[in-house]
Structure formats: C-alpha cells, structure tokens
Simulated scan of single mutants.
Amino acid sequence: MQAFHLIGAAPFYTNSFLLITEADHAVIIDPAAEVQEYDKILREKGAVLTHILCTHGHYDHVGSAGGLSREWGAKVWCEPADCGGTQFFPLKGADFGYEEGGNLTVDELTFTVWHTPGHTEGSVVLLCDTYLFVGDTVFQGSIGRTDLEGGSSRKMDESLRKFAALPIPKETQLLPGHGDFSTYGEELKTNFYIRNALRNA
C-alpha cells in the first residue's frame, strides 16, 4: 500500500487521504482537496480510483466526491443520514452506506467500520491496517462539534464510550479530519472528552 496525505483549502484545511493498493486500485478517504490534486497522484502512480469513503457528509469533507466519482467511475460510501442534498450536506445520495462492524475489502486492504454519531448522525470511523480514520469524531485532544445540524452531545458521549472500547492496538495511528495526527492509545489516555464520557457512563 502507498498512502498520501492531502489537505483541503482554507479555512478548514480538512485532512484527506489517498491509498493505493498493490494492484493499483485507489481509495480516497474524505475527498476534501481539489480534484486535480488527486488526479495528479493517480496518474503519476498509474492508479485507478475505485472507492471514495466519507467519514461523514459535511461539505468540507465531501467537496470533490461528485467530480471524482464521475471522472473515474468510483463508488461513493456515505451514510444516508448525511446525504441531504443541502449546502451543509451536499451529497444527494451515495452508492453505499456502512454496516456496523462490517468489513470493506479493496485488494489487500480491509476497512472495518464503526458508526459514531454525535458530530453528525451518519459519522463513522474506519480502521485500515495501522490507520484509524476518525473524521470529525475525535481530534488530537478534542472532539467534533455537536452543536451543528445533525449533532448530538448525548450521542457523542455514547460514541466516545464505544470508541474507547474498540478492539484495536493502542499504537494505531489516529488520523482526524482536521489538525495533527495522534495515536489511539494517546487519545484514550489524555483526551479530556473521552475520559469524561467514560466517567459519566
């Protein structure tokens, strides 16, 4: 696997990730950068985009999904609850949603998915090998906002408790939708919001 980190435009600087398998199939997690940025890497590597995986449906995470899907014929995964066809949730639909605890396989890559509503109703986290793509569920030392459309502080607390019990190694790299990277273990140990949700269980 080859992995690339791209960043969306200001003011959000959304983290986006492009993975290329050994068979030259590509997966984008949260298509937030410009279409041509992905195209450049894909063409340089001789790869074909086949899967677009959205951790949730906010406009700063899905902005290039439609253009990339049309250009490459790639399928889009996003929870139906986050496909509103609005300015805030621009996707009108997706090819697939996610099965709780289910696996999505692309060549040698396997993504395991858990639903984590709270930032949005359709938020998910995705584990692939040693990478945990968490969207806006968890940040380094923080969590996603719950006061926006589709958000819920109660559901976020429930999701944080679920998150803290995931069967994954503590050294797994935590890749959030914004800001610096961390590890799963570091956030369990130091993230105030996770620790507070566990105390209030």
Rank of each mutant, 00 (worst) to 15 (best):
D82R: 08
G84M: 02
I143P: 06
F89W: 03
V125E: 12
W72S: 10
G102S: 05
H178V: 14
G84E: 04
Q87V: 13
P167S: 06
H119D: 15
G73H: 08
N196C: 05
A197E: 00
L19N: 03
L132T: 11
L53H: 09
R43P: 00
G150C: 07
M156C: 11
I28K: 06
E79I: 02
R161N: 09
N103W: 01
E158D: 14
I41V: 15
H25D: 09
W77V: 04
T112W: 03
G93F: 07
Y184M: 04
G185H: 12
V124Y: 08
T86H: 03
M1E: 06
M1T: 15
I28D: 06
P90V: 04
V125W: 13
W72L: 11
D129Q: 12
S123K: 09
S64P: 02
G93T: 07
L68R: 13
G84I: 01
G177C: 04
D180T: 06
Y13R: 13
V76I: 15
I52Y: 13
N200V: 01
A201K: 03
T112A: 05
E44P: 00
P90I: 02
Y13A: 11
Y131D: 14
D95T: 05
L160H: 11
V125S: 10
E99F: 03
D30I: 07
S16E: 13
D82K: 06
S64G: 03
D136L: 09
E34P: 00
